[in-house]
Design a protein around this nucleic acid. Structure first.
Lengths: 126, 126
DNA sequence: TTCAAAAGTAGTAATGATTACTATTATTGT
DNA sequence: ACAATAATAGTAATCATTACTACTTTTGAA
């Protein structure tokens, strides 16, 4: 993988905007700095970066695809009211892989968990 | 929601084919019995049925959308080798909702879990 | 430093899944 | 039996994503 300014800025945008943006949101943000970056470039780089493990690709319950620069093991929560995506650290979730593989004999390599509900702010507003 | 033969057959197809088919797979299966059913009809009905809770919509880690007539609480596993989708009964998985809401204060209403790895058959073939 | 191979890019076209639209048909309660 | 309402087939439109192409950057060795 060769260096490119575009890839560097995509990664930087992702780090500076921990809002779990979509490819198009990153594209819109980047156009300020790099007016004629191509949307295809954003997709290509995000896919490369998620292949190489530098970013994480999250598919929401509605099928929308978000990207996350947090590569520590963690899960996600999407608020039904404000639609924000929150990180759930692995320590707040019981060990799923181990439990499932013990009960079923399956070998588990990946585990995606998406929770939905109301975040703390939106609970107050009720 | 009025009765329709199309919706009845879509539900029947889903029950008789517990392979977690996609909308298009259901469409292809149904064309044998109902040669000029429309793909749009399949989508419309699957969405209605998942709205009304009669079927379950699953988004795989790759974003592909599958449907499941099993409405008991359960999760899914997709084999990396044979690509089959398996049901994981809730009893094989620790109580995620409770644990997360205790640790985070979030109110959890939905919980989608998709695991990937090797199924028992594909483990043997290694 | 120079230069050619490899990888990356912008811009555009193509794809594939899903939804919207419309004129027609089926279901339902009275 | 009939009018209101919902559903349908078929087609066109949309949206996210990928593929393609001619051109530009990066990189490492001569």
């Amino acid at each position: 993988m060769k260096y490119s300014k575009q890839r560097e800025l995509i990664l930087k945008t992702l780090q500076e905007n921990p809002i779990h943006p979509t490819a198009d949101e990153i594209y819109q943000l980047l156009r300020h700095e790099l007016p004629n970056i191509s949307l295809g470039t954003v997709y290509r780089n995000l896919n490369q970066l998620s292949e190489s493990g530098e970013v994480m690709k999250i598919t929401g319950l509605d099928g929308s695809v978000h990207f996350d620069h947090n590569t520590h093991k963690h899960y996600h929560f999407i608020c039904n009211k404000c639609n924000k995506v929150y990180d759930i650290p692995a320590k707040d979730v019981p060990d799923i892989e181990h439990s499932v593989s013990e009960h079923t004999g399956l070998y588990i390599s990946e585990c995606e968990l998406v929770l939905k509900g109301l975040c703390r702010d939106c609970q107050k507003l009720n």
